[in-house]
Amino acid sequence: MREHMTTSWAGDWFADAEITPKMVRALHRIGPGGVIVADALTRRFRVMHSRRLDVADATRYIVYGHGDLRQDLADFPCDYGDRDWEHLVTAIDETSRDCLDDWLDEAAQVRSTGQRLRQELRARGFDPDARTAFPLVNGRQTYIDHYTDRTSPHITVTVKAPCDHAPESRVLVRVFDRGGHASGAPYRVANPLTAGPAAHRVRERVDAYLRRGART
């Protein structure tokens, strides 16, 4: 079904879909790992925990996550009194439908190595927590994934990598504790076979940081 969504009319495919205040409040209740997805099978937006989302499932795409909501609640101008939440939801809904075409086109550029890395990180307890960002870095298309640690949700991890995962490139992994930078390291993930060992090293890095914190 993803072929329907990657055309220039993905926005039309979801023309009758809506992100509502009830959905965003449900996302807030779910907490870290909660996501809103565009579901191509139902042509609707759905709220779920990303643990239930198969990263290889091409029919569901994350348009918004708890990590995005956490950031927006901190940044959104509080100028509307009791209607602050409703105005924020309107912005989320309109952006999700208006930008869906571009987001899906960008997502299609992530090669099999990046997809495998996502699977390996999930297998090691890291749940997607936000929509993937696709910045252009030095003329090269790059993606940034956001994760929360399943057993220590105050720990978040970002993975920044070129979409093509060329052999000479590096993947930058950064670890945050309650939003503050805790650790970071570059890894070479040049093909799917190297994704598992890289994800294992990320797990080890996070666990080592948590052990140091437990001793202080």
Rank of each mutant, 00 (worst) to 15 (best):
R150L: 12
R174H: 06
D164M: 12
H146A: 04
P162T: 07
H181G: 09
R150Q: 13
A161W: 04
T142W: 15
G179W: 08
V175K: 01
I155Y: 11
Y143G: 13
D177K: 01
P167G: 07
H165L: 05
R178G: 02
D177T: 00
S169A: 15
S169R: 09
T151R: 15
L172T: 04
H154Q: 10
L172S: 07
V175R: 06
T158A: 02
R150S: 09
H181T: 10
D164I: 05
P153L: 03
D177V: 00
V175L: 11
H146W: 12
G180N: 10
I155W: 11
T148V: 13
P153T: 00
D177W: 01
T142E: 14
K160R: 14
F176I: 00
S152G: 03
D145F: 06
E168G: 09
A182G: 07
E168Q: 08
R178M: 04
S152H: 15
L172G: 02
H146L: 03
P153G: 03
D177S: 12
T148F: 07
T158V: 06
V175W: 00
T156D: 05
T158H: 05
V157T: 02
P153V: 02
P162R: 10
A161K: 08
P162G: 11
D149L: 08
A182F: 03
Y147N: 03
R150N: 05
P153H: 00
H154P: 01
H181L: 15
T158D: 10
E168C: 06
D177P: 03
R150A: 13
H146Y: 15
R170H: 12
R174M: 10
R150C: 07
P153D: 00
V175H: 08
R178Q: 10
Y147W: 09
D164K: 09
